[in-house]
């Protein structure tokens, strides 16, 4: 076993990074900071830990949490027990969704009918939250092409090192990973598409299917390198797909908000329940949500790993 006090020699650099002990980059930086300041920082650090508040902080936090848990459990045991029929949550709203959901929405998956028809505005909000999150991550992490001139020598060196590393990785990619991904990835993609397209008649839907497709894209990018995925999925494609899907979702849903609010005709036939082409707008809405989720998942991955899409 590893000595718990000896944190400097972690075999896994990721573990070291998560524990905040990564020494790969800071080495150079530390030389740059004057020793006087370092000493001051150390003494201040020590004083912080000997503070009376910090001494009492940990036991206080544990006591607070235990009291919190006790309070929550005390409230919980007053609620109706698990699995009973007459709990107040199972009220006429749920009853209505189950009884009239098929007739109103045409979807045999009542949850899909609920989130993409009765509560479609909520789902539009969810997709917008994902979109906003990926925008924020792009603002924070994306490497800016224009800023290249302003970079310091050190940053330039770092970038060159990273590029070299990437090239090495490309040349010596794991054969097992490559072969397995080559066999598995098409099936993952197919399954993801199946889950998206059957969202209204079976378990699944845009969010879960989109996550599966995103995972497949991440696997392809891991196995064959980002250069391969860049051929069909670059920043331009990403922008067009996400914003296009979100706008189309909004357009479709505003159309049905105006024409098909409850007990009004949308003009879109519901079709035979259980068939793929049924339940009005739910199928296209599922596809748009799936596109947004897949792009977002892959976007998060590539932004966090490379700083670009």
């Amino acid at each position: 076993m590893r000595d718990p006090n000896n944190h400097e020699h972690h075999s896994n650099p990721f573990v070291a990074w998560v524990n905040g002990e990564s020494k790969a980059k800071p080495e150079e930086e530390k030389k740059l900071t004057p020793t006087k300041e370092k000493r001051a920082a150390k003494s201040a650090d020590v004083s912080v830990h000997h503070d009376r508040f910090h001494k009492a902080y940990k036991p206080l936090a544990v006591i607070l949490c235990c009291a919190f848990i006790a309070l929550l459990i005390f409230v919980c045991v007053k609620t109706p027990p698990f699995g009973v029929t007459d709990a107040p949550t199972n009220n006429e709203v749920a009853q209505k969704y189950i009884e009239e959901g098929l007739e109103d929405t045409g979807a045999t998956n009542i949850v899909a009918g609920m989130i993409l028809d009765y509560r479609a505005f909520d789902t539009l909000g969810e997709s917008s939250v994902l979109f906003t999150a990926v925008m924020a991550v792009i603002i924070l992490l994306k490497k800016d092409g224009d800023k290249k001139k302003e970079m310091t020598e050190r940053q330039k060196k770092e970038e060159a090192l990273q590029q070299h590393e990437e090239e090495l990785n490309d040349r010596h990619r794991d054969v097992i990973l490559k072969k397995t991904a080559g066999i598995v990835a098409p099936f993952i993609m197919m399954f993801g598409i199946y889950v998206v397209l059957n969202g209204h008649i079976s378990p699944g839907g845009g969010f879960s299917g989109g996550a599966i497709i995103g995972a497949g894209l991440i696997l392809i990018s891991q196995a064959f390198g980002s250069k391969r995925t860049k051929k069909f999925f670059n920043f331009k494609v990403f922008t067009i797909i996400t914003s296009g899907a979100l706008l189309s979702y909004a357009a479709l849903k505003t159309y049905s908000f105006y024409t098909g609010s409850h007990h009004m005709e949308t003009g879109v036939p519901h079709g035979i329940p259980g068939a793929i082409l049924s339940s009005g707008f739910i199928l296209p809405l599922n596809i748009f949500v799936g596109l947004i989720v897949a792009c977002t998942m892959f976007g998060f991955y590539s932004l966090f790993s490379k700083g670009e899409i």
Binding site: T89, N90, V93, A94, Q95, Y97, I98, E99, G101, L102, T108, N109, I110, V111, M114, S202, P203, P273, G274
Partner: peptide
Amino acid sequence: APIMGDNLEASVEEYINPIP
């Protein structure tokens, strides 16, 4: 789970609450 298979005659007594 509230997913109708072959039985399209929905009755509240068969399915759990879909809202959560």
